[in-house]
Design a protein around this nucleic acid. Structure first.
Lengths: 202, 202
DNA sequence: CAGAAACTTGCGTGCCACGCATATTTGCGG
DNA sequence: CCGCAAATATGCGTGGCACGCAAGTTTCTG
């Protein structure tokens, strides 16, 4: 990778990280685009060369994680049953990436609280969902390749991708709503299993 | 219903209808809030008393339809199998409402073309998804009542609602992508059946 | 019918996304 | 090692939008 691309990736990462950090610290609408750009050491105008809104910047890491999960699906062994592969791929998004160690959190309590309010921010709901939809599309492509179905004509890959996205969202919401006794991994695994079982009435 | 509420409902409807019509005719960003307000016979400032953005106004009819489907679920007979009730409820959103006859479309071809570009408009994607999420929440409540599950502690009602929303979206996207040979009803029925069958690999 | 409550409207403000022109940086071939 | 072309960063200006606030105006209630 040339210097050009590397710098671009760094700037992008710096911007999204700054957007998240400032939003967690101060709340979404106490952060101007100007602040984010300044924190990333770049001009305000440049911010909009990378992201078309504050929300997009904040959500971009989430999107990356989801896309990594889709890649993971393609990396699963060929013979593995589909839903097993899917479960592994979906769980892989929680493996901590390098960005976690790069920015150590000093006050974990305040950080988590800020994260919760950020995730709950109404102005960001559309951005989260859009990111989910984009990830769903690439996931559908992976499912299509894996199952030999056709993205254009078959309902199947889209249905599977949408169902996985649904399970992911439900698990996430339940996790945020709950008291933290259930792990995210357990919730997601259960959600996927139930969907693969056809959601029979309890 | 008093005069007050009736007028409010009328204004709201007029605004959303104007927003849709103008967007279909001219394209999303050739329509100012000012135009919508004028078309509805109301001041620009009043527009924002009803909707907090153009997108919300455009999407509001869609949201109503989805919420009607959730109501329909509660109206299904008590003994009916859950997925049968769900399918009926989901299909009910396509029954033409009174608003269709109130605003006859003159040029159907141009109208449909405009609708397609409106639905594809990137700036509206978040709004569509947000509406879907809101409808999903009320659908989950209906499922919880119907199955005797708990919205707070159980994953089940949320999973079902999310899966139905997923099926709905997939069917809709496939319909828009396709050539119109498959009916929306058939697509949605198939999608729901597949999900209720646990999405086995083909 | 009078007062309260709800709704509408006009005005002002701060912010934001983005087009365009210009300066700066990077990559590449000589 | 150098200079040119392409990519990127920046500054500036514009149009638009969401919303707070403070009157007006309409509807409801007793």
């Amino acid at each position: 990778m040339g210097l050009r691309e590397r710098k671009k990736a760094e700037t992008r990462s710096a911007l999204s990280w700054a957007a998240i950090r400032l939003t967690v610290e101060r709340g979404f609408d106490n952060v101007r685009v100007e602040d984010i750009a300044a924190a990333a050491g770049v001009s305000p105008r440049t911010f909009n060369n990378y992201f078309s809104s504050k929300g997009e910047a904040i959500v971009s890491r989430h999107l990356q994680r989801l896309q990594r999960a889709a890649d993971e699906l393609e990396a699963r062994p060929e013979g593995e049953p589909l839903w097993e592969s899917i479960t592994h791929a979906a769980l892989s998004q929680f493996e901590p990436g390098p960005e976690l160690t790069a920015h150590p959190v000093t006050d974990r309590g305040a950080w988590v609280a800020g994260l919760r309010t950020m995730v709950a921010e109404p102005a960001l709901q559309g951005d989260w969902l859009r990111a989910g939809a984009r990830a769903e599309a690439v996931f559908a492509a992976a499912v299509a390749r894996r199952t030999g179905t056709d993205l254009e004509t078959d309902l199947y890959p889209h249905l599977v991708a949408a169902a996985v996205a649904a399970a992911n969202n439900v698990a996430q919401n339940h996790f945020l709503r709950g008291d933290g006794t259930a792990s995210m991994e357990a919730l997601l695994t259960e959600a996927l299993a139930r969907i693969a079982a056809g959601l029979p009435p309890p």
